[in-house]
Amino acid sequence: MKSEKDKFIIKGRAFKFGENVDTDQIIPARYLDTSDPDVLACHAMAGIDEDFSKKINPGDIIVAGRNFGCGSSREHAPLSIKAAGIGAVVAQSFARIFFRNAINIGLPIIEVKDFKAQSGDELELDLKKGKLKNKSSGEKYSFPSFPGFLQNIIQAGGLMERIREESKKGE
């Protein structure tokens, strides 16, 4: 079990993708015949690399360009990435439905406009302090924390968890 402090630290290797990675590439429709996260995990990023899920260690980080997750609303996309063991996605920007889906299910996503990394680089992310380090290149980056509304969802562990917490408070 991770300590409270370690919960915000993510360490892993970078897996780099390009711009406008759409949900048909993250999880092609032929794999949408289940809602089981463990099955979806096997097909994460299958539209680009069928063997992606076999290559990753828990905590590895997807690095991408603009508009990551554009296209369909399928929550299977962030879910497959999270269930495959990816610790976070760092992109220049996210498509809006992917963004809210990731927040709602508790997959850490970070927007860093000028971030540079190659596949295989060792990365370290501190979600609480807003720091991102590329240990392979030595470059350091910072990013702003999410607005309070989103922080509440993230800290609760997801949207449903936040609603449940609030309804308990209201009782």
Partner: peptide, 9 residues
């Protein structure tokens, strides 16, 4: 358009 968790909520 939103996601499945939004709909559940």
């Amino acid at each position: 358009g939103m996601g499945s968790t939004d709909v559940a909520a």
